[in-house]
């Protein structure tokens, strides 16, 4: 590399922030376009060609709005909360390999670090909801916390299964293991993995508060949930955080299961493939959002505790058995 270490990291972090900001803006645009076409409309089209300048207009609008701090809120928590959602998301990007070389910090415990930061995210929602001094926001914060706690468990169990397979928490290495074609992707590593992928994907939907698990901001029940009281960029930062988390969720799913930046045909550079896979998953997330109604909190928790956790435990157990017992059998025969 040409740049020396601290400078390289700085450039990457700046790049990540730009990437997140750009993505948050254009994923909103994409979301509106996808929603539009699913609903037989055309979505934004007035500002710029295909409405491409719409996010710019939205951004200017959000930034020019007053950052209102209502009476009775806890001003510190109220202001800190959006950052608590966004900053961990930015930090998580540090270890995500966009391609073999394109990674800010290739550390050995990258996977662990991402999950550590992902858990901070829920603090942001909780403090935002609590600090708003609004009953809807408090209910929403309570929901978001119980939801995140419930879904982190099956998600982590799935990840543990994954680590058992890969023997590493280094994301880049995990991707390297999946080289050589579609069938080498971890999702096809054994018959249990597609189920594990499904569990992981559902959990990441729930973790990022996306429909059908968007109980935190259930607009027909809780107005806008934890960000009811936020205006202008306060709301904008929450929004950016949400989209950043979606990218991380889909990015992780890609890295762990879908071969990361590995290209099946050997054409185009790796980061292109990584982004293509991520955006495909994000499209699926949007697709789900605009198709399904919202579950209830009870249904959501039941799904986690009664279905996802037992299944993920079963997969963990079977995978363990496969790793330890299978060689014995084959070795014996």
């Amino acid at each position: 590399m040409i740049l020396s270490e601290p400078w390289r990291l700085l450039v990457f972090v700046a790049g990540i922030i730009a990437f997140i900001a750009l993505n948050a803006a254009y994923l909103v645009w994409l979301e509106r376009k996808v929603a539009g076409h699913i609903q037989r409309r055309i979505g934004p089209k007035e500002v710029g060609p295909f409405g491409l300048l719409q996010p710019l207009a939205d951004g200017i609008k959000l930034m020019s709005k007053q950052l209102l701090v209502p009476k009775g809120v806890d001003p510190l928590l109220f202001k800190v909360a959006p950052l608590l959602v966004l900053v961990p998301a930015v930090m998580s990007f540090v270890t995500i390999p966009f391609s073999e070389k394109l990674v800010a910090r290739n550390i050995d415990i990258g996977l662990l670090m991402i999950f550590a930061f992902a858990s901070v995210n829920v603090m942001g929602l909780l403090l935002g909801g609590w600090g708003s001094n609004n009953k809807y926001a408090v209910i929403s914060a309570a929901r978001a916390v119980s939801q995140n706690v419930a879904y982190e468990i099956p998600m982590l169990i799935t990840v543990v299964t994954m680590i058992m397979l890969t023997h590493t928490m280094n994301l880049n290495e995990i991707v390297i293991q999946q080289a050589g074609g579609v069938w080498n992707w971890h999702i096809f590593a054994n018959p249990l993995m597609p189920i594990a992928f499904l569990i992981f994907f559902i959990c990441s939907l729930a973790e990022t508060n996306r429909a059908p698990f968007d109980l935190g901001e259930a607009e027909s029940e809780l107005i806008a949930g934890f960000h009811t009281e936020y205006s202008g960029m306060g709301f904008g930062v929450f929004f950016m955080g949400e989209y950043a988390n979606i990218i991380i969720g889909c990015g992780l799913a890609t890295i762990l299961f879908l071969g990361g930046w590995q290209c099946p045909f050997g054409i185009l550079p790796g980061w292109w493939w990584f982004l293509a896979k991520v955006y495909f998953l994000i499209f699926c997330v949007m697709w789900i959002r605009w198709t399904y109604p919202r579950t209830t909190l009870w249904g959501l928790l039941n799904l986690s505790w009664k279905i996802l956790i037992p299944f993920s435990l079963l997969i963990l157990l079977l995978t363990g058995a496969m790793i330890k017992v299978w060689p014995l059998i084959t070795g014996a025969s």
């Binding site: 929603a35 699913i38 609903q39 037989r40 409309r41 429909a211 059908p212 968007d214 259930a218 607009e219 027909s220 605009w290 198709t291 399904y292 109604p293 919202r294």
Partner: peptide, 16 residues
């Protein structure tokens, strides 16, 4: 009604 339940798309189908 479906909007109340969090599903947005049917509203626009119905409006159509």
């Amino acid at each position: 009604f479906v909007l109340d339940l969090g599903g947005f798309t049917p509203l626009l189908y119905a409006f159509d």
